[in-house]
Design a protein around this nucleic acid. Structure first.
Length: 829
DNA sequence: AGCACGCCGACT
DNA sequence: GTCGGCGTGCTC
């Protein structure tokens, strides 16, 4: 760091601000603070006329900006860097690669609790006495604060009727009249639970046995004591008493509050408070960490280590149920023993389940979990714990790539092919799997990509020796791959073997399974009751008012909903066109499947697993528990079940809309269909028994089904890769998608056309596809057009992107781009 | 992205 | 005559 004690130079800092404006922002450092500014610390700055933001310093220098007057910093939030150099480098890399601003990345990288903004609170110092030191304006403001207890920057601004209250506030802070507390300190409070334990006296065996004798006459108190001893066997080991028992456990059993109170009064029990981390699920005993790998697993494990000697990235391609997890665990143990940090990325839904419980049991306190359903408090807690080194192992979703690692040794990306690793909606539109390879390079860490059905991009790299490749082709134990049956729905319909959407075969199988006490899973990749409702007279279909899609009927809420914009309306009784009353639900969603199966198979206990039934944090876990405990016979679900559920009991899987998946208009449709169907099918038949899978389709001769039945990933890959090469699709080219949006259809088309022509001129028509209307032309009243850019392998991506950015900037200055939104999606899926 | 400045319709 | 609609342009 610079340190010129008598320097006449003025210091400036370049900072990242959470705004979608390219580049960094230069601010001036007040003379007194020169010693405190440093790369990686957060600062609060004024921005525009009335806003304050938290930014992070990326550079300290003494070059005044020439084109504008730099403003002063308002506040310094950290003593030490909160964001380390590698993180700053990663932010910059992502912004460059994904063609967004550092601010976009910063916004995604930091939990909100670490980004105070205009909402920061101001409070009067209660011990403040020296009112005579204040200016008139200041004392008026302080009196206002006295009344209000606290106020926000915004409130202060409107009260003071000035454009920027920060100078006055700063002066008051200097006089110790007020506090500005960053919301971090305010919002972030540790969680405390109340526990009960024996007083020290009764931890002695003789006192305790004596007590039990005395309580013989008081059965209720005795019951309470015995319940305690049942959970905490103090007689066996008095030191266990220190752990205590959650008060809830008493109240949940038959023990009355009054008997507890009596025991507390008589100083048998005492209450104490414990600060708990928000996600340590109790203090389960750690299970023994030594387990044997099977021969196949051990061979794979050794091969991975070998591959890491020469390559940084390795693909582990292991069939469902081959026991990849044990191999991961072994690698994680090695890395941790080595003193390295480990990051284990999972798709969101997989994270709520058993695997995390299992890892928690093995790795205990060193394991931190980073999940999108966690509150902001919890995220800040994880962030700090990683920075402090409390967690050396993180299991998390996409965004955990931004955590403050300083010594990463191993990154595992499980279910590597999952599209949820790519962020689609707000920028940065990054792919965690790809970001992780850069992150790992910075840390000189190894990356293991795991999947039963790798993405073709990844497999291509492995095949071409860029990544290591290790295969695990046998299922763990003796379990056989499920037997897959195709049901020809066209034929079944002719033979009168269809019952609505269900073939007799599936219904029969469900009945047989139910009688045998076995569980079944039905897969329908569409939530709600029916994907559309239609008038039987005039064929009118209820459409969303803001989007170019039909409305899905949700029976539970008796509403029509748009799955794209969230629009809702109550179920109409009349046709929107002819006024007729014969509206009918068309097609099948999970709700309707659930209802009809209930009708066909009365007595079956049916559970539904889709976005609608698992919105809350615990709902999904409760459903899983119900399945595990055998409280459900049939589970109906969307792709959530394919990805989230992982247990033994399922003996049969039924798949309904296979045709929809296969015929999806996208060059990756076959790859995706293979992955999804294989994944769903893989839910059937674990631990010994062979499972059965029934797929309803009207094109049973489709080659894809044969590949799925044979588990012939390789064959499908070979076939598809030829097509990809022939038609110039990934992995032979990189794709960048441009989306052009406008409220007016014609304006979107005009802008897209103009841009398309420019790009064709400058990059060659062969590289530009479109403009074309996307699958859904209008969402939230915005019409969209798409342009696809193909960049063949070997072309310098960074140069291409700089060139592309210039073209885009030029286009956006055109009159035809007025009011047009332009989205850039690099490596779009 | 916000948010201010700025230029045209329905209200006291 | 004003309040307020959202079009456009800037933010270190």
């Amino acid at each position: 760091m610079f340190n010129f004690p008598f320097s006449l130079q003025t210091f400036f800092v370049d900072i990242i601000l959470p705004v979608p404006i390219p580049g960094y922002f230069t601010y001036r450092v007040p003379k007194d603070w020169e010693a405190y500014v440093q790369k990686g610390i957060r600062v609060v700055v004024p921005f525009g006329t009335s806003k304050v933001y938290t930014g992070v310093i990326v550079a300290v220098h003494s070059n005044p900006p020439t084109k504008y007057q730099a403003k002063y910093l308002l506040e310094i939030l950290d003593e030490y860097p909160l964001i380390n150099d590698k993180q700053l480098d990663l932010i910059e890399w992502i912004a460059g690669y994904y063609m967004c601003t550092p601010g976009d990345v910063f916004q995604a990288a930091l939990p909100a609790g670490l980004k105070i903004s205009s909402q920061s609170k101001i409070q009067l110092n209660p011990t403040f006495e020296e009112w005579e030191q204040l200016t008139e304006k200041e004392s008026v403001f302080c009196n206002f604060l006295k009344e209000k207890e606290s106020c926000t920057f915004d409130e202060a601004k409107s009260f003071l009727e000035v454009k920027s209250p920060y100078y006055l506030i700063k002066s008051l802070v200097g006089k110790s009249a007020i506090f500005v507390f960053d919301e971090l300190k305010d919002r972030y409070s540790p969680k405390i639970i109340r526990k009960i334990r024996l007083t020290e006296y009764y931890t002695h065996k003789e006192h305790l046995t004596q007590l039990i004798g005395v309580l013989e006459a008081k059965p209720k108190q005795l019951a309470a004591l015995l319940l305690y001893l049942q959970h905490i066997s103090v007689l066996r080991d008095p030191s266990l008493n220190a752990k205590g028992l959650d008060k809830k456990i008493f109240t949940q059993s038959e023990i009355s509050e009054s008997s507890i109170q009596t025991l507390l009064k008589n100083e048998v029990f005492e209450v104490f408070e414990q600060v708990i981390s928000r996600f340590s699920e109790g203090d389960d005993e750690l299970i023994p960490t030594k387990f044997e790998l099977s021969n196949a697993q051990n061979r794979a494990f050794q091969e991975i280590l070998k591959s890491f000697e020469t390559k940084d990235i390795c693909l582990l391609k292991g069939v469902t149920g081959s026991g990849k997890t044990e191999i991961y665990i072994r690698l994680i143990q090695e890395a941790l023993a080595n003193g390295d940090q480990v990051l284990y990325l999972l798709p969101e839904i997989a994270l709520t389940t058993q695997i995390v419980m299992r890892l928690k049991k093995i790795f205990g306190e060193q394991l931190g979990i980073y999940h999108s359903k966690f509150s902001d408090n919890e995220r800040v807690e994880v962030w700090k714990s990683v920075a402090e080194g409390k967690y050396s192992f993180i299991v998390g979703v996409r965004s955990s790539v931004f955590l403050p690692f300083n010594n990463l040794g191993l990154v595992i990306v499980d279910e590597e092919h999952e599209t949820s690793f790519k962020q689609t909606d707000p920028a940065p539109r990054y792919h965690a799997r790809d970001v992780v390879t850069i992150l790992a390079k910075m840390h000189q860490a190894k990356v293991l990509l795991g999947s039963a059905t790798p993405s073709f991009e990844t497999y291509y790299q492995a095949k071409n020796d860029k990544f290591g490749l290790v295969e695990l082709n046998e299922r763990y134990g003796e379990t056989l791959l499920p037997e897959i049956h195709l049901i020809d729905t066209k034929y079944a319909a002719k033979a009168k073997q269809m019952n609505g959407g269900f073939s007799e075969e599936i219904l029969d199988k469900l009945r047989v399974n139910l009688e045998a006490g076995k569980q079944s899973l039905l897969f329908q990749n569409r939530r709600g009751y029916s994907p559309y409702i239609q008038c039987q007279l005039c064929e009118w279909i209820a459409q969303c008012t803001q989007c170019d899609v039909s409305l899905t009927f949700h029976a539970r809420d008796k509403e029509l909903k748009c799955h794209y914009c969230g629009y809702k309306e109550t179920l109409p009784t009349r046709c929107g066109a002819c006024g007729g009353t014969s509206l009918q639900t068309m097609g099948y969603g999970t709700e309707k499947i659930e209802e009809e199966i209930q009708m066909h198979i009365p007595g079956a206990r049916i559970g539904r697993v889709d976005l609608d039934t698992t919105r809350s944090k615990t709902a999904f876990q409760n459903l899983i528990l119900d399945v595990q405990n055998g409280n459900l016979d049939i589970i109906v679900g969307t792709q959530m079940v394919a990805k989230g559920l992982d247990f033994d009991g399922l003996s049969m899987v039924g798949i309904f809309d296979a045709d929809k998946i296969i015929n999806f208009p996208d060059f990756r449709a076959h790859e995706r269909a293979y992955q999804l169907i294989t994944q769903v099918a893989g839910r059937a038949g674990r631990r010994g028994a062979q499972g059965e899978v029934y797929i309803q389709t009207n094109q049973p001769t489709h080659a894809l089904f044969q590949a799925i039945i044979d588990g012939d990933y390789e064959g499908l890959y070979q076939e598809e890769i030829v097509e990809r090469e022939g038609y110039n699709y990934p992995p032979y080219v990189r794709l960048i998608r441009l989306v052009i949006k406008h409220v007016e259809d014609t304006k979107a088309k005009k802008a897209a056309n103009d841009l398309g022509n420019l790009l064709k001129q400058n990059f060659g028509a062969g590289r530009i596809l479109g403009p074309e209307k996307p699958l859904i032309e209008k969402i939230r009243n915005l019409y969209a057009q798409e342009i696809l850019i193909k960049i063949e392998n070997g072309v310098s991506l960074s140069k291409f992107k700089i060139n592309l950015r210039e073209n885009l900037d030029l286009a956006q200055s055109w009159p035809s781009f007025k009011g047009v939104q332009l989205i850039v999606d690099v490596d779009c899926l």
